[in-house]
């Protein structure tokens, strides 16, 4: 997916909205900062998420980090192959590295997220 078409959270998740279905993953910046990912744990299909709620966890360099839902909704699909193909996160974070698909509660909530330009600025200004 073209990052220019995506929305971003300040906690480094990306979101692609197709109607009422949002595809969610973590950004190339996050993957690079995490380095050497060894585990990812994703939610079950059917789980409902609030915006900002933890939906999964990743481990890298002995650091476990939480993943946060950028919008509220119900998980409709999980990239079940990702835990066994973590290279996908580094090689194609906006494509093969997708994590979950969510039937969003309110699609307009995505408007509050950052566009790519604002997200890149956030990464720089936050000293990341």
């Amino acid at each position: 997916m073209d990052p220019a078409t995506l929305k971003f959270s300040k906690s480094h998740e990306w979101l692609h909205l197709d109607g009422e279905i949002a595809t969610v993953g973590i950004t190339d910046f996050a993957v690079e900062a995490l380095t050497d990912l060894v585990f990812v744990d994703l939610p079950e299909v059917g789980r409902t998420l609030d915006a900002g709620e933890i939906f999964g966890e990743v481990e890298s360099v002995k650091a476990v980090s939480d993943l946060y839902a950028p919008v509220a909704g119900e998980v409709t699909e999980v990239n079940t192959g990702l835990p066994d193909d973590l290279d996908a996160l580094g090689e194609d974070p906006f494509g093969r590295g997708w994590m979950i698909r969510v039937a969003v509660t309110d699609a307009s909530a995505a408007d509050a997220l950052l566009d790519e330009t604002a997200y890149r600025e956030h990464c720089q200004s936050a000293g990341h």
Partner: peptide, 25 residues
């Protein structure tokens, strides 16, 4: 064996790990 370890000779004597949550560590 990780680059972050403290070793004494060939023996690891200090190892650390992290949890990152909402920006805190």
């Amino acid at each position: 064996s990780a680059a972050e370890d403290v070793v004494c000779g060939k023996h690891k004597v200090l190892g650390s790990a992290q949890r990152r949550r909402r920006g805190a560590v």
